[in-house]
Amino acid sequence: MATGGRRGAAAAPLLVAVAALLLGAAGHLYPGEVCPGMDIRNNLTRLHELENCSVIEGHLQILLMFKTRPEDFRDLSFPKLIMITDYLLLFRVYGLESLKDLFPNLTVIRGSRLFFNYALVIFEMVHLKELGLYNLMNITRGSVRIEKNNELCYLATIDWSRILDSVEDNYIVLNKDDNEECGDICPGTAKGKTNCPATVINGQFVERCWTHSHCQKVCPTICKSHGCTAEGLCCHSECLGNCSQPDDPTKCVACRNFYLDGRCVETCPPPYYHFQDWRCVNFSFCQDLHHKCKNSRRQGCHQYVIHNNKCIPECPSGYTMNSSNLLCTPCLGPCPKVCHLLEGEKTIDSVTSAQELRGCTVINGSLIINIRGGNNLAAELEANLGLIEEISGYLKIRRSYALVSLSFFRKLRLIRGETLEIGNYSFYALDNQNLRQLWDWSKHNLTITQGKLFFHYNPKLCLSEIHKMEEVSGTKGRQERNDIALKTNGDQASCENELLKFSYIRTSFDKI
């Protein structure tokens, strides 16, 4: 039985969820670079991206490699990797027998973001014989899940209580170790020597080791999670996991709180800001991140802002960003909400898709409305799209047979046209069989910064309504002859009103 693990408890099935942008060198404390989270699957090609990484700022997932063999891993080693800020997950990587050479110096898994409450997941690794993470000293947050690894031993010899604050939620089941077939031998045991430290858990006094050649490092209890030197002297209180010299914040392997210019500090002093819960960055760093993602459509890219001495992905609820200094300031009234469309555009074809934009005031991208039916549609669209004030790209209304009016965009005031449909149009209306009105132009103002209007096959939309939009939106004169079809717009509506004058002759039985 794995020490510190839980057996036999019912657990939810383990679901495996399925960018080499360097964020800056980590400095003297770390020998390499800070790398983003990685999802490495199918083959070993991307694994080489770990070569210079000291910190993975995010998670590391290595999974679904069915053609790899043990010899493929023999020359692979990433000794610079010290810390993973989120979680480490391995799933069905064939041929991998140990992690001792792959990650010989991995010391800390912070667990800032977890995989279903777990910071370390080893699942269905069919050839893994031992973990071998002999320098792993601290899992700051989260638990361990090690399950269905039929060859995995050296679990009962690990004292997880020396690595985690609590072992109650560890789930370590259905491994070879369960069948008591392992016969784990710690260093020196074969020669009758006791080389590794022994600890007591559940009444068992057991030597602690990761492999037959690597003991588990056990520091004096007084050192807590700070770690200790090879001689057993406690590291500085700002260290986490390990250090090369005692009581020196510049000799830590990793930091308990924050890293700044080669030393570990309790908090980031001005003019620095907390970033990702582990390091200090200056304003320029946060500003660069903001600008890199301002026009990016890459998933996970955030326009970072500053709030409460932190550089964070977005302002919290009730705050909006001051564009001059990136500071989050309290909103006066309802907060603006910028919604970034991942692929640059979004099609609204149902109430469900409209709900995804609920509360958005600025759309960074283009909207395509293609709704053919739905219950209580006008009210639903207004509830979900009615706060949109600005669209950076274009607005396209296409084959939306259920629409009679666009009044559900009740606050839309600006279409920038930074991206144009077919390279020309910022407003595009095609084949809307029941569209009769755009907006009530006596109450609604709309500016279209650039781009043209396109109207074709809107049989109940009168040309007068379209011409009014040209005047109000500032697009009059931009359109070419064929942009607004004269014969297919309003051709099934009563669009022309003329005053009919009647004269009559009164007659009676005795007068003409």
Results as ranks from 00 to 15, higher is better:
Arg113Ser: 02
Cys239Leu: 00
Arg46Leu: 08
Asp39Arg: 05
Arg92Thr: 00
Asp177Gly: 12
Ile201Phe: 12
Gln287Pro: 13
Cys315Phe: 00
Gln276Asn: 11
Glu33Ser: 14
Asn175Val: 04
Val173Leu: 13
Tyr273Gly: 02
Lys148Met: 02
Asn308Phe: 11
Arg263Asp: 04
Tyr94Pro: 02
Asp75Val: 11
Pro316His: 03
Thr221Ala: 11
Arg208Glu: 10
Leu63Arg: 00
Val108Phe: 04
Cys243Gln: 00
Thr157Asp: 04
Ser213Ala: 09
Met137Glu: 02
His214Val: 12
Tyr87Leu: 00
His290Tyr: 11
His214Cys: 08
Val253His: 09
Ala190Cys: 08
Asp165Pro: 11
Gly192Met: 09
Asn295Cys: 09
Arg113Gly: 09
Gly300Ser: 08
His290Glu: 03
Ile146Asn: 04
Cys219Arg: 01
Ser323His: 14
Gln245Val: 08
Val144Pro: 03
Pro313Asn: 05
Ile172Pro: 08
Cys280Gln: 03
Cys252Asp: 00
Arg297Ser: 09
Cys239Gln: 10
Cys239Arg: 00
Cys182Gln: 03
Thr320Ala: 12
Ser323Glu: 10
Ile82Pro: 00
Leu289Pro: 05
Gly32His: 10
Pro31Asn: 13
Pro36Glu: 06
Glu49Gln: 08
Gln303Pro: 11
Cys228Arg: 01
Cys286Asn: 07
Leu29Glu: 10
Ala156Thr: 06
Val121Ser: 01
Lys310Ser: 13
Thr45Lys: 12
Leu133Pro: 00
Ser317Lys: 04
Pro316Asn: 07
Asp72Met: 15
Thr140Tyr: 03
Ser284Ile: 00
Leu63Met: 03
Pro246Leu: 14
Asn105Met: 07
Leu233Gln: 10
Asn179Phe: 06
Leu155Cys: 05
Asp159Arg: 03
Phe258Lys: 00
Glu33Cys: 10
Phe205Ser: 15
Cys328Glu: 03
Leu76Thr: 01
Ile62Cys: 00
Arg162Pro: 05
Ser98Arg: 03
Ile146Arg: 02
Cys255Met: 01
Arg263Gly: 12
Asp261Gly: 14
Val305Tyr: 05
Pro249Ala: 09
Leu96Lys: 02
Leu88Val: 07
Asp288Arg: 13
Cys280His: 01
Thr194Val: 13
Ile201Gln: 08
Pro197Met: 09
Arg110Trp: 04
Glu314Phe: 02
Val34Arg: 10
Cys252Ile: 01
Gly333Pro: 13
Phe275His: 06
His226Met: 14
Ile222Gly: 11
Thr189Glu: 03
Trp210Val: 01
Leu81Ser: 01
Gly227Lys: 05
Val305Asn: 03
Ile40Met: 08
Glu151Gln: 07
Cys311Ser: 03
Tyr319Trp: 03
His28Arg: 04
Gln303Met: 13
Asp86Leu: 01
Leu88Ile: 12
Phe283His: 12
Trp160Asn: 01
Arg263Lys: 08
Ser161Thr: 14
Met137Ala: 06
Phe285His: 13
Asn105Gln: 10
Cys255Lys: 04
Asp101Asn: 10
Leu102Ile: 05
Leu327Glu: 11
Asn179Ala: 10
Gln245Ala: 04
Asn325Cys: 10
Val121Arg: 04
Pro220Phe: 03
Phe91Gly: 00
Trp278Pro: 01
His302Trp: 11
Leu44Gln: 12
Thr199Asn: 12
Gly95Phe: 04
Asp169Val: 13
Ser296Asp: 12
Ile163Leu: 09
Glu124Gly: 04
Val200Gln: 07
Lys193Gln: 15
Glu207Ala: 14
Ile82Trp: 12
Tyr273Trp: 08
Lys80Trp: 10
Phe115Ala: 02
Gln303Ser: 15
Glu33Asp: 14
Asp165Phe: 11
Ser213Cys: 14
Val121Leu: 01
Asp184Ser: 12
Arg92Leu: 01
His290Leu: 09
Gly111Phe: 00
Leu60Gln: 00
Pro79Glu: 09
Gly203Ile: 01
Arg110Glu: 05
Cys182Lys: 05
Pro336Asp: 07
Pro187Phe: 10
Asn149Ala: 10
Phe275Leu: 02
Asn117Thr: 00
Glu207Ser: 10
Asn42Met: 00
Asn135Gly: 09
Lys129Ile: 04
Asp165His: 08
Glu49Lys: 15
Leu240Tyr: 08
Glu130Val: 05
Trp160Phe: 07
Glu314Val: 05
Leu152Ile: 06
His28Asp: 08
Asn295Phe: 13
Asp178Ser: 09
Met137Ser: 13
Leu289Val: 13
Ser213Glu: 09
His48Ala: 07
Val108His: 14
Leu64Thr: 01
Gly132Ser: 10
Arg208Lys: 12
Asp277Thr: 07
Phe103Met: 13
Pro31Gly: 14
Gln303Arg: 12
Ala156Met: 09
Cys268Gln: 00
Cys243Glu: 00
Arg141Ser: 01
Ala119Trp: 01
Gln299Gly: 04
Ile84Lys: 03
Gln61Glu: 07
Leu120Gly: 00
Ala190Asn: 08
Asn42Asp: 02
Ile312Arg: 13
Arg141Thr: 00
Leu96Trp: 00
Asn135Gln: 09
Thr199Glu: 12
Phe275Arg: 02
Ile139Thr: 02
Pro336Thr: 04
His59Pro: 04
Leu128Glu: 00
Ser284Phe: 02
Gly58Val: 00
Gln303Phe: 13
Gln245Pro: 02
Asn295Pro: 00
His290Ile: 03
Arg46Ala: 06
Asn150Ala: 10
Asn175Trp: 04
Val206Pro: 11
Gly58Gln: 00
Cys264Asp: 04
Phe258Ala: 14
Gln204Pro: 09
Ser143Val: 07
Lys100Arg: 13
Leu114Ser: 01
Glu130Gln: 11
Cys215Ala: 04
Glu180Tyr: 07
Ile62Gln: 01
Asn295Val: 05
Ser143Leu: 08
Lys251Ile: 03
Ile185Ser: 05
Leu152Met: 06
Asn195Ala: 11
Cys301Arg: 06
Thr157Asn: 11
Glu151Tyr: 11
Ile109Arg: 00
Thr107Leu: 04
Asn202Trp: 05
Val108Leu: 13
Asn282Leu: 09
